[in-house]
Amino acid sequence: MFEFHIDFQGQHLAEQVTQGVISFFGVIAFLVGLIAQDIRLSMYIFAAGVVVAAFSVIPAWPYLRKNPIKWLPSREKLAAAAASKQEPSPSDLKDKKTA
């Protein structure tokens, strides 16, 4: 199914992309409008920038999900693994106690 959530690095990247794209289009909109002496053109360029920014960050594109969070295994799984192994490693036990 569809994935709507992105990871932490993806969130940081999404924010940078949003601000970068909209600011860039804003500067271009001002310069082009000033040279062409057309305020309408300026507004259209800015609107295009907002659309580009929205399209590139609002959907959870794969480039925003490159670093998924690696969770620790659950206690049950850990216990099961410990039981199947005759000798649980000391690190496993320590994790179990402090968890």
Partner: peptide, 18 residues
Amino acid sequence: MNSLQNRANAVMAFSISA
């Protein structure tokens, strides 16, 4: 920026400032 709505909100909010 985690959820879809959150990202839409962030884009619109920044575009208003810009």
